[in-house]
């Protein structure tokens, strides 16, 4: 269903090839999916009203996959993204990130997971306006306790990767929207995370910049990263090699989630 996407044709084969290599390298537990969501409910309480944002979601994403979660606003996709990003915990059900159950983690542990294993790309870019590009990129490394010289080296490498080597000292206000989003992507990459979570990354961009960002995501995927893209836009979702549709808090359809998920 994502075969029409621009980078799609070569991805299938690429994926199968990459997966094997990747699994053995950083995570010795072979066969453990990056994301393993089973029967997840999320209930919000506003006053006396209870709202079920997620109603029993099952989702499995393997290492090296590029998955788009697609749904209209109010479908629960943002809630799912928050849970996948360890920004929120499920009310019921389990979420394993690379094999580790998130529900048993303390707030400190969750912070560490967000820091080391997840790279976020937001619709609003969420760059700190007062810091230069490289200072924005180094933030996750700062919280990881890495020393300054190493932070700078890795931040610059990451910015070069997204094609902004000549903008390292610019502040977000001095960059175009597309460039800002690429800085945010450099920040997501800098810790070498297990998972890149992109929440409507093209939502605030013109079509040219959006294309750049999608090309970059595709490129990251091609180099073996696991990418989960959340969008309401069919065209954007088409860039992924698997699309999971979500509506009213339930997964509607998607690529066969595979035997692995149903355990």
């Amino acid at each position: 269903m994502s075969d029409e996407g621009p980078a799609a044709p070569d991805l299938r084969s690429d994926e199968t090839a990459e997966v094997v290599v990747d699994r053995t390298a950083p995570h010795p537990i072979v066969g453990v999916p990056v994301i393993e969501v089973a029967g997840v409910w999320k209930t919000y309480r506003s006053g006396s009203l209870e709202v079920d944002a997620l109603r029993g979601v099952d989702l499995c994403v393997d290492r090296g996959e590029y998955v788009a979660v697609m749904g209209p606003s109010g479908s629960g996709k943002s809630t799912l993204m928050h849970i996948l990003g360890c920004l929120d915990v499920p009310t019921a059900g389990t979420f394993r990130l690379a094999g580790d159950d998130v529900r048993s983690m303390s707030e400190e542990d969750l912070a560490q997971v967000r820091n080391r294993r997840i790279g976020f790309v937001f619709q609003q870019f969420n760059l700190l306006a007062t810091l230069s590009a490289w200072r924005n990129v180094e933030l996750p490394l700062l919280y990881a306790g890495i020393e300054r010289a190493e932070r700078r080296r890795r931040s610059l490498a990451s910015l070069e990767r997204v094609g902004l080597a000549d903008r390292v000292d610019h502040r977000p206000g001095e960059l175009s929207g597309g460039q800002q989003q690429r800085v945010a992507m450099a920040r997501a990459l800098v810790t070498d995370p297990d998972l890149i979570l992109a929440d409507e990354p093209t939502g605030n961009l013109d079509s040219v910049s959006a294309g750049d960002v999608l090309a970059l995501l595709a490129d990251l995927h091609r180099s073996g990263r696991t990418v989960v893209l959340i969008t309401h836009d069919t065209e954007v979702a088409a860039a992924a090699d698997r699309v999971v549709r979500i509506r009213d808090g339930r997964i509607l359809a998607g690529a066969p989630v595979g035997a692995r998920e149903v355990r």
């Binding site: 990003g85 912070a111 976020f120």
Partner: peptide, 16 residues
């Protein structure tokens, strides 16, 4: 609030 949220999303613990 946004800055704090972002810093937390990027791995800042409550203590930090």
């Amino acid at each position: 609030i946004r800055e704090i949220g972002l810093r937390k999303a990027l791995g800042a613990t409550p203590r930090v």
